[in-house]
């Protein structure tokens, strides 16, 4: 890790305007939770776990935030032509990737975790939490890391990382995983939900992920390590564009 790179990346990712937009974005699940409480429906546990957290936050907000930060942290350096300045320094490529990853992870996890915690507390106000709050908080933080690592690798692989990432999240994870059960082993969303299940203690009717707890933790770890390794390897052999 390199403090200078971390500070630089933080300034790149968290411009004034973007931070405001992001906070508004994080506010949406909270508002929905408030509306839910006002309407006062039954089965708040099932709603908080399966609808709010699994579907809305982990299904949509987490990958979107990770997509923005994960691809921008390193990808914007290539797009803007500033990558030369950090690559022409005596810093191991591993340190560059890890520093950039750290910042994008913290930014993603920060926004989404805040939304998860506040929205879940509101949704389960006065109800037993049964590990839902802690479980999903943990899952969001872990899932943010896996997604960011994956998208960072994509961003050193292709200049259209954002589109590829979108296709992955919303076609592969969103549609294909639902149709073909075997694909669940290759879905970060399923890892994230599986990790939540290590803590969440509710009946399957309330929340039932498709991957076992241990499978999910192992696959998430492998995916992170592998994508970080691939990103570092790719960066080592990065060639400046011919035209640029």
């Amino acid at each position: 890790m390199n403090g200078t790179l971390i500070r630089l990346t933080a300034r790149q990712l968290l411009g004034q305007k973007r931070t405001v937009l992001l906070l508004l974005f994080g506010l949406v699940p909270v508002l929905i939770a408030v509306l839910y409480r006002v309407a006062g429906n039954d089965e708040p546990q099932r709603w908080a776990a399966s609808a709010l957290n699994a579907r809305l936050i982990i299904g949509t907000f987490l990958p979107l935030a990770a997509l923005v930060f994960g691809t921008a942290a390193l990808g914007s350096e290539f797009e803007d032509g500033t990558a030369v300045y950090i690559l022409s320094k005596p810093i191991p490529r591993r340190v560059i990737v890890l520093s950039k990853l750290l910042v994008s992870w913290l930014a993603t996890a920060g926004v989404v975790l805040a939304a998860t915690v506040v929205a879940t507390i509101i949704a389960l106000w006065g109800e037993p939490r049964d590990g839902i709050l802690v479980g999903f908080a943990l899952a969001v933080v872990a899932g943010a890391l896996v997604y960011c690592a994956l998208f960072m690798w994509l961003s050193v692989l292709t200049s259209r990382a954002l589109i590829v990432g979108l296709l992955y999240v919303f076609i592969w994870e969103g549609v294909i995983t639902r149709l073909f059960a075997g694909v669940r082993f290759f879905s970060v969303r399923q890892y994230t939900l599986g990790i939540a299940d290590t803590v969440v203690d509710v009946p399957a009717r309330v929340f039932n992920p498709r991957l076992g707890e241990m499978e999910a933790v192992a696959l998430a770890t492998i995916t992170t390590a592998l994508t970080v390794y691939l990103a570092v390897r790719r960066l080592r052999r990065w060639e400046i564009g011919e035209a640029s």
Binding site: R11, D80, G81, T82, K89, P90, I91, R236, S244
Partner: peptide, 21 residues
Amino acid sequence: ENPGMYRRIGLVPEREAVYPF
């Protein structure tokens, strides 16, 4: 594949890009 050498090299690229912020 030898980032260590940048200790002894200075590089002024052609592209105008800087970190605008």
